[in-house]
Nucleic acid binder design. Structure first.
Lengths: 206, 206
DNA sequence: TAGATTGTTAATCGATTAACAATC
DNA sequence: TAGATTGTTAATCGATTAACAATC
């Protein structure tokens, strides 16, 4: 009677649907369809319906989807109908930009603390935060019960930081350093590296 | 006698291979194998061999791949055996961090100019650059022959900026704004949104 | 030579699309 | 009712994996 697990590739598209729906709400759209969503995102209507059908029935034949209802349901599915506290490791340019980023608030996340190991940066203010000493990271993150973190340190330190985050109990890591991280099976990692995205495009240029 | 086009998903993995190889060079590794690469990246050895075989034969039976040779070949395939000048649009926290980012240099890219429409920012220094007036963007980008750009403006302005970049002749856009962009078929877009990555992971948490 | 690893083929697996009955 | 759009099934398409001859 076990349900098949949802394919990861489907889960990966849900945040895109959610983002479009959030935008539609702001634009005042009350109703949408798989076709309209698909056009906005460059995804086929059939695929959107198939993806959503993995989680339930959210639409109405003939009329489509209630924007706000589908939006709320996707937030529940993705568990962002609450706010996740995050730790940022590294207070350089990227870490600082992340700590000041205003785009987390209404999408389920909040930066709660930021760490660095540079004595000049420790104690300094970045956005609303005082930079904490990275030496205290494992203890502080664990004590705060934080399980989501972002790595914004140089590539050479990233794996070491990841190991410490795992020790602290972190289960989801967004990695800004341009290296692949090795973590235990129960820890999730996403990589974000502008250069890999750019290189993917230059292949097609000229 | 036409070759089938290389699947996009394969092209998307090449930058990861390249990144690992660059790291191996720094570590002094002279030779690697599909198995070792796969372990580093969490990709099967068979897939790596299959991917590479789309472009030629780069290895030697029994011994594997010469790290530097494969690295150089991948740079050629991805067209990053040269330096692409880029324009950054938006001199806020993200645009500024991007403009100062040291990680482009040895991977085929260089920020050449940065634009904003805020009178307070225009003329100010960000990294090595003086912020230019966004009103001049189409003209300046076109005159410089730049075809790679990064959008780091608020979501509400991103589509408009994209339209202007297309007018300026840009063919590859890395978009930091959390919106889907619509561009002509011959223009490539990659999106980078920390929140979509995070939401992809929270699905699995708790 | 013996051991290792490639490049490639065929088999498997999974994802996308097309089509349509159901129904608002 | 007529028109529109869902949810779902079956068909298609494409990607991954397993296996192995070739060969360094």
């Amino acid at each position: 009677m076990d349900h098949k697990p949802i394919p990861d590739i489907v889960v990966g598209r849900l945040p895109l649907y959610l983002r479009s729906l959030q935008r539609m709400i702001k634009e005042g759209n009350l109703v949408t369809s798989s076709q309209e969503l698909g056009e906005r995102l460059g995804i086929s209507a059939a695929q959107i319906r198939k993806d959503l059908s993995q989680f339930g029935e959210f639409g109405k034949q003939g009329t489509g989807y209630d924007v706000e209802y589908l939006h709320d349901q996707l937030k529940i599915i993705l568990k962002v109908n609450r706010v996740w506290d995050m730790a940022v490791i590294g207070a350089g340019d990227i870490g600082s930009a992340v700590a000041r980023y205003q785009g987390f608030a209404d999408r389920g996340f909040r930066v709660a603390m930021i760490f660095d190991n540079d004595p000049v940066k420790i104690g300094a203010q970045v956005g609303d935060f005082i930079v904490k000493d990275k030496a205290t990271m494992v203890e502080v993150v664990q004590a705060a019960g934080i399980i989501v973190a972002m790595i914004a340190v140089p590539a050479s330190q990233a794996q070491h930081v990841a190991d410490n985050l795992v020790k602290a109990g972190v289960k989801a890591i967004l990695n800004y350093a341009p290296v692949s991280l090795n973590v235990p099976e129960d820890v999730h990692v996403q990589h974000t590296d502008p250069v890999t995205h750019l290189q993917r495009m230059t292949y097609y240029l000229e």
